[in-house]
Design a protein around this nucleic acid. Structure first.
Lengths: 209, 209
DNA sequence: ATAACTATGTAACTTTTGATACTGTACTTT
DNA sequence: AAAGTACAGTATCAAAAGTTACATAGTTAT
């Protein structure tokens, strides 16, 4: 475990902290589609992402979701951290976008390290700051952009996260993430294809140019 | 200044911290409508709100704004904190909703106190957590609700912040905050009036029931 | 091979929101 | 009192997004 931490967090945390983390944490593997955290869960451990990608979703009152953002290797979920610290239920759902690995840190250690390690404080604050930025980005998308732009952004994000111009997903899946209907997604995707920006295949989309 | 701090933050910060704050901070009065922070400002001081209310806005690329949330006595602006810590430009605009008072704390002290005072750490984290919740709330509004519901929520928030059922503002002002047009606001307000939920006057709205 | 299922394409229609334009009314200024 | 200005009401039209319904093309199971 220490080597894994060294690899991803070697430039972020000091040696001693990495040893402490390794001593008290658990490693957990996950596969694509796994629900890592669900709405209403009580969080007792904070996850550090070592490998893979996770998408964070917000739930509608009556059915329906919305993708908030993705997190990647080296990130943690500030929303989850918020729940840890505040000892409240999870406001979000975390679903594995790819297979990967997280390190789970007990909450009480987080607190202790905040007073003890400056590098930990910086990491935690950076996480919050990044998450706030992602949230602002989500708000910009919702408030200022039309569905076609939101869709294009979504495809780009998805492409970046998976390091591939080929996006393997269905129109229905996209509709869930953007909180719209399948028909709308199909319509707009077709328009994007006609504009020469993407190419549609069955259950997969190819980004052009 | 110490008395002011004692009054609002006496139950949050320990005696010694309050003394430290009082020693290095500046007091600043503001009036309704004052722009306290603008897009792109570099933030060198963190504000603690002592009295009054402030609204936090997000800017569109080409003209247009969106109200994110209000902050009240005892709050601080985590978005601003984020800018302080990250040493980046402000992503938001802060406009005084009422007249009031803030205490400005130099950034370098914030850092120092994080290691030194647990109550400060807790306060800072709570602020982040509250702000994340407000952002989630803003997202819920945008993603899951129609303009009429958003409008009604806006009126309720405004009423709570000003401790009054009378809201003194114009349809145009509301349109700016909700990032829509004056005509739409007038239309929906009239519908709410017909439903008996509000009463309209010139440049003021009365919440009923 | 055929049935059943999944993913997509598309037409037709409705609802919501936005845009433009014009009206009237209240308040302010001179 | 007249003119000017800010605020609100409303009609008409257009665009964006959501809904329903149905057709068709691949895929999988039997």
């Amino acid at each position: 475990m220490k080597e894994l931490l060294q690899q991803t967090y070697g430039f972020v945390f000091e040696e001693k902290l990495i040893e402490e983390i390794a001593a008290v944490s658990l490693l957990r593997d996950f596969n694509e589609g796994d629900i890592l955290i669900d709405f209403g869960d009580y969080i007792k451990k904070m996850p550090l992402l070592i490998e893979g990608a996770i998408k964070i979703l917000r739930e509608d009152f009556d059915e329906g979701e919305l993708l908030l953002y993705f997190i990647e290797k080296g990130d943690t979920c500030a929303m989850t951290m918020a729940c840890c610290m505040g000892e409240t239920k999870s406001e979000i759902r975390a679903v594995a976008e790819t297979k990967g690995m997280v390190i789970m840190i007990p909450v009480y250690k987080m607190e202790e390290w905040l007073g003890k390690y400056k590098s930990w404080r910086n990491y935690v604050f950076n996480s919050y700051n990044n998450r706030l930025k992602e949230m602002l980005n989500a708000i910009d998308n919702l408030a200022f952009m039309n569905m076609d732009e939101r869709l294009m952004n979504y495809l780009n994000d998805k492409s970046n996260i998976n390091h591939s111009k080929e996006i393997h997903t269905t129109h229905q899946e996209i509709a869930y993430d953007l909180h719209t209907s399948r028909v709308v997604v199909s319509r707009l995707l077709k328009a994007l294809e006609n504009d020469g920006r993407i190419k549609l295949h069955r259950a997969s989309i190819e980004l052009l140019n």
